[in-house]
Design a protein around this nucleic acid. Structure first.
Length: 592
RNA sequence: GACCCCGUAGCUCAGCUGGAUAGAGCACUCGCCUUCUAAGCGAGAUGUCGCAGGUUCGACUCCUGCCGGGGUCGCCA
């Protein structure tokens, strides 16, 4: 249960009662009324801005209104005090039993604690990764993969029905380029080209992809088809089969990488399949029928005109009608559809499959593309569809503060697999979520493995491991005691009297609220900061026990106090496990 | 030139979608770490929230205009 949401509705109830009595006008808008933990401890347990928000529409002085509302709130069960403070805040003190109730909830439901209903079962589609099937996944992809995956898990926890989707860009020019590059490598495998020949082709830009990663693909192709494609001159003949071969190979590699990262999609959608099924034609025909496309000439972009710019009439989508800056081309000069046209069809396809709440996770370099797709979605759904695009910023790879030099041409970029092999998937996942996704992130090989407070992965995992360690000791100290979650649920929690213990209780009670706000904001990184804070508070309790023996979790002479504290320790562990589950990270039993 | 993101302590970043005296880690200063659950602990100091206006009872948060950094800008995806 979300205690703050509960109190928000109780406060709403008080206001409605006052309105019914005529003390306040009827029909006040309560959406801005909030019940929150105060920023400052010492301002009570729960604070509400009700009086300040309602003062104006009610035509009342905020402080006087606050006094009236506070008087009513005082009379509520569980409320032990209500004071007006500052410009009109009402600070509530509530029975500690409420906080203890949160801990009992955790013990009763385990890591599912914090699962919310705000999603209301609404269907959401989260599209992420969608890396081109032209090469192995690198660090940049990893961030989008992790952010998308965590966001999907977060939304699911908050009560949304989430579908995780991957869009395969297996149509268009890029995959043809890879096919050509593969052909060159294939000829090299057959001994018909030397490495120098291939590099020459690269230099002359006859092929666009030079990476040696294509060698095993070429070998596999030669193994299957022999020299079949070496004899065929016309590339029109060999491009399709070689393209399909590469795409299949790369997608297999991508799926392996994703599996190693613990990322699993529900659906893989193919651009080529959309094209082949005529869905691009159909989508653009749909827009044409609405009168939303026309043939026109675009102005060259000011300030930076491409060298080869020449005004040319082309088929445009009226994106400006839906909030974009300029109308956007949907056809290339050779008459084929642009990538955008395919994307229009793809988003129409999502809508046709029943998704109106869409989230896309893209690399920041696609930022300029957001408005036009949102415009397209508006056009396709008559404004009913929502598309939020989360842009994942650059990841800078460092080793002890030193930037790791990367070059795609030289093939020395850091692959996702390198990263996982080096530090493990859980560390990769956690670190990728320690910044909001629209801020650049430094990933330091050395620092993420450090065992110190500076390293959030370690610090959070260490808190969990310490909790488990306490239980191993407890089992020895109290051999007959019931240390299961159920057993601990019966402990006398009123024995948790220390202010820091109560502080941890409050943080636990804040978990459902944290999930809700992070889910609504589409910001999984907030979970990382919550977990760090909770871990920090837990380590604080532990340290206090070092100084004052009577504050240790385990008191050999007092089993009841020990059980109450074990309940708290377990609660912290379960909430951390619950948060790590959102991140797709395994909690550890002990540090090694 | 336009659009998007960013600008908060010396450094790296939070700031709960408008709330009260803006927070954490690192670095810095001081004290502690023979016992204890110490891959350390405690205490202290640190700010024109890029600048200037505006909206509001109230602005780091919203709006406008500048300044600085990054990204993108018809026929790549």
């Amino acid at each position: 249960m979300n205690i703050f949401a509960d109190f928000k509705s109780r406060i709403d109830g008080v206001v409605n009662a006052l309105a019914a009595e005529g003390a306040l006008p009827a029909g006040l808008d309560l959406t801005r009324v909030a019940a929150e933990p105060p920023r400052e401890a010492g301002h009570g347990d729960i604070t509400t801005n009700a009086a300040m928000v309602l003062a104006k529409p009610a035509g009342k002085n905020p402080k006087e209104l606050a006094a009236v509302i506070a008087e009513r709130l005082k009379a509520l069960p569980d409320v032990t005090g209500a004071e007006v403070a500052g410009p009109g805040f009402i600070n509530l003190k509530i029975n500690d039993e409420i906080w203890r109730g949160a801990l009992r909830d955790v013990l009763a439901i385990g890591p599912a604690y914090g699962d919310g209903k705000i999603g209301g079962g609404e269907i959401v589609n989260v599209e992420y990764v969608s890396a081109n099937p032209t090469g192995p996944m690198h660090v940049g992809h990893a961030r989008g993969a992790v952010v998308g995956d965590a966001l999907a898990r977060l939304l699911a926890k908050a009560g949304f029905a989430v579908t995780k989707e991957y869009y395969i860009n297996d149509a268009g020019g890029q995959v043809d380029h890879v096919a050509r590059a593969l052909h060159a490598r294939y000829l090299q495998v057959l001994g018909k080209l030397s490495e120098e020949d291939v590099q020459g082709k690269l230099a002359r830009k006859e092929i666009m992809y030079g990476g040696a990663y294509l060698m095993p693909v070429a070998e596999k192709l030669a193994g299957r088809d022999g020299d079949k494609w070496a004899k065929v001159e016309d590339e029109k003949t060999w491009i399709p089969p070689l393209r399909d071969f590469t795409v299949a190979y790369m997608m297999e590699a991508v799926k392996e990488d994703l599996a190693a990262l613990g990322v699993q999609h529900d659906i893989f959608s193919s651009e080529k399949a959309l094209v082949d099924a005529g869905k691009v034609d159909a989508a653009l025909q749909y827009l044409a029928d609405q009168g939303l496309t026309y043939t026109g000439v675009l102005e060259p972009p000011k300030g930076k005109t491409p060298d080869d710019w020449e005004p040319r009439p082309q088929l445009l989508f009226k994106a400006t009608q839906f909030g974009d800056e300029v109308d956007r081309p949907v056809k290339k000069s050779d008459g084929s559809w642009t990538y955008f046209a395919g994307d229009i069809a793809y988003h129409k396809d999502k809508v046709d499959r029943g998704f109106y709440n869409l989230i896309n996770v893209w690399g920041a370099d696609h930022g300029g593309y957001v408005k036009r797709v949102q415009a397209a979605l508006k056009a396709l759904t008559v404004g009913k569809g929502k598309l939020d695009v989360q842009l994942a910023q650059m990841v800078r790879v460092l080793n002890n503060g030193e930037p790791v030099k990367m070059s795609k041409r030289a093939g020395t970029f850091v692959t996702l697999r390198d990263l996982i092999d080096e530090v493990g998937k859980d560390v990769v996942r956690f670190i990728m979520l320690t910044r909001k996704n629209d801020a650049p992130l430094d990933f330091d090989y050395a620092k993420v493995m450090e065992k110190s407070r500076e390293n959030p992965v370690f610090y959070v995992q260490y808190a969990h491991a310490r909790g488990r360690s306490v239980f191993r000791h407890a089992a020895e100290m109290f051999p007959g005691a019931d240390l299961t979650d159920k057993g601990l649920g019966k402990a006398d929690l009123s024995l948790l009297k220390d202010s820091d213990e109560v502080g941890v209780l409050r943080m636990i009670a804040n978990w459902p609220r944290t999930i809700e706000s992070a889910a609504v904001a589409h910001e999984p990184h907030r979970i990382a900061f919550y977990m760090y804070d909770l871990a920090s508070a837990f380590h604080g309790l532990w340290n206090k026990g070092n100084d004052a023996a009577e504050l240790r979790f385990l008191q050999a002479a007092d089993q009841n106090v020990s059980l109450a504290r074990l309940a708290l320790v377990r609660g912290v562990g379960l909430v951390i496990a619950s948060g790590l589950a959102v991140f797709g990270v395994e909690p550890v039993e002990e540090m090694r």
